[in-house]
Design a protein around this nucleic acid. Structure first.
Lengths: 364, 364
DNA sequence: TTGAAAGCGCTAACAA
DNA sequence: TTGTTAGCGCTTTCAA
């Protein structure tokens, strides 16, 4: 019955209790305490309650680091997000955390502020903490440098047994250890453009989104396909790209309105740009949708508050966050089984058209 | 020159390199590798570069768990937030993360969805990971149960050497190990009410915010003090409390407008309620600020987009997040020295009045 | 059903 | 300047 020797050094007040303390207090070995804690091995009822009482009394809290070192315990899930203050990204992060929590996992959200360097340093930190899955959300441009940077990252992560999930950003070509989860922006842009064309609009302006963003390119592709489907072609001067900001939407729309506007509807690259466009349109004394129909993209909370409420495309942000974590976990050796999904298939989530008060038939 | 023996077991592909692998590859001991990694001890230039080359070649990544176990390495900072999707909370989280990052700390944001149980389970997880500082943000009611729950939490956290920081929620009475950081809501409410009174309004309605929230009580206190300062008393029927939602603001304002409105200005408990009130007011064919002045609180992004733009009170959300982390760190034994702040003084951050287009002199 | 003991990867005395 | 070694708290064979 001789228990494992107790802790060797004197304790400080703010030092946590260890399994040794509990073992000593309960008069059992540390192995037994471990078995009680994990409940994965038979322990007699009497011993169990002795140990549980001791744990309770001492306020014992498992040390996740020791457990991780010993090769057990759940690993972390990292969620790298471009901007926490942006409800679009925040909602994706929210979904990802919810899904992680559903698997009993601790996930941490890191705000990269759009900086690739910050992204890297968070990635390092996550690597050091031996995260399981890292989800990188949103906003990257899809040039060669991007591909290269992320290929390197994927390799580094893979070397510690961690999966990289690219969420709502361009997938990597030729990297088998990376998972991509995206929105089907082409389809969303198609739907909202089709809505305008069906109302009878013939001159539609596309306004905003950096041309370097794959998101923008996909939206423009949908915009063009809708025109083709209606037997029309797109006037290239009707496509104007720029930053995804309210300020830019306001200023650019002002300029367009000062010249003779040759359009009856505006497809804004996102809701923020639409909010800016609203301002400019109202200042000109024009009405929405009487003089001009306006649509946005993303359906952020602002869309509902604008006057009139904005017709827009809702992207399933929370769902994509969940999907990203689910896909990452599914790729793990011991991940949850998912018979319905082919793990090698990059998910693409559909969007929905939300028709509100900012669209109507053209006046003329 | 005999190096430390190499790792004992064969390696799997996704197993990370260890300090043993590096030591072996560089022909040095693990202690030397550790010294190179930490750079806190003299190592000859030649040895250093040999080790660095080996680390590079093998793709070595420090194991944060092992480091933590060995009693070194930085601990985590936890940020528990009521709702990530709410820009108000998101901004606080953002500030907290920024400040943590400034100290080279990894912080994790957890979305508790307002559930005390979820809050507890995240707290457990954080405890297991031996977080340094836990910041709990916002929204709690300040009853006896709240005090009790948090007293227990503070004690548990303290037993693992972790500080609890209550941010933008009521401070604890009689618990020395807890830190409180708050907004001065009384002052903000005073300022915006004073603004309305100075414009000449005499009948001002206070609309919204759960009466159980200390935030609400503080705002009402400021509302009343402003009246007293102007030599007026508040008609109790002019204070209406309710949930902080747009829907409630809309419905409640509809009812008030259906009856004979006995007020010329409305102080909404937050901007969301104001957005709802706007809808109801406009539907009645009334104008803002012509027929009715409206003010909000918080200055969330929606405030700027409302038409007319909303006069409101800006609370320094990002600053309070930073302050919370700073205060938590300052309380640590080895925390950053801060000669300017008394660590035992609960911080209270001032607010600013943002005057926009929704307030004017009363018509009558 | 329980205990003894060997690691997990790293740091920090202590020796050399 | 470098190496040896004893832990940190936990899990997990292997024995009893």
């Amino acid at each position: 019955m001789a228990a494992t020797p107790s802790r060797r050094s004197p304790r400080r007040a703010d030092e946590a209790m260890t399994i040794y303390d509990v073992a000593e207090a309960a008069g059992v070995s540390t192995a037994t305490v471990s078995r009680v804690v994990n409940g994965n091995y038979p322990v007699s009822a009497a011993t169990r309650s002795k140990v549980e009482a001791a744990m309770q009394r001492l306020g014992y809290v498992t040390n996740a680091h020791a457990r991780a070192l010993a090769g057990s315990g759940r690993r972390l899930i990292g969620i790298l997000i471009e901007e926490l203050g942006d409800p679009y990204f925040a909602s994706i992060a929210r979904g990802a955390q919810l899904e992680a929590a559903a698997y009993g996992r601790l996930s941490l959200v890191c705000n990269t502020r759009g900086s690739s360097d910050l992204e890297d340093s968070f990635l390092d930190l996550l690597l050091e903490h031996r995260a399981d899955v890292v989800v990188v959300v949103g906003g990257a441009t899809s040039d060669d440098r991007y591909q290269e940077i992320n290929r390197v990252r994927a390799t580094r992560l893979a070397s510690t047994g961690c999966r990289l999930v690219l969420c709502a950003r361009p997938p990597l070509t030729d990297v088998s250890t990376t998972i991509g989860v995206q929105f089907d922006n082409e389809q969303g842009a198609f739907a909202v453009t089709d809505h305008l064309l069906a109302l009878g609009h013939r001159r539609i302006l596309y306004l905003g989104g950096p041309p370097t963003l794959s998101t923008t390119m996909n939206r423009i592709a949908g915009f063009e396909r809708a025109h083709r489907t209606h037997g029309r072609s797109v006037d290239p001067t009707m496509i104007i790209t720029g930053p995804f900001t309210q300020r830019w939407g306001y200023q650019r729309m002002q300029q367009l309105l000062d010249a003779e506007p040759a359009f009856t509807a505006v497809f804004c690259g996102n809701d923020l740009v639409a909010a800016g466009a609203y301002q400019a349109i109202k200042e000109q004394g024009l009405t929405i949708p009487g003089d001009l129909s306006v649509v946005g993209y993303d359906d952020i909370p602002i869309a509902r508050v604008l006057d009139p409420a904005l017709t827009t495309v809702r992207v399933p942000t929370e769902a994509i966050g969940r999907e990203a974590v689910r896909a990452g976990l599914a790729h793990l050796a011991d991940g949850p089984a998912d018979p319905y999904t082919d793990p090698d298939e990059a998910a693409s989530l559909g969007t929905s058209l939300i028709i509100r008060g900012s669209t109507a038939e053209p006046r003329d």
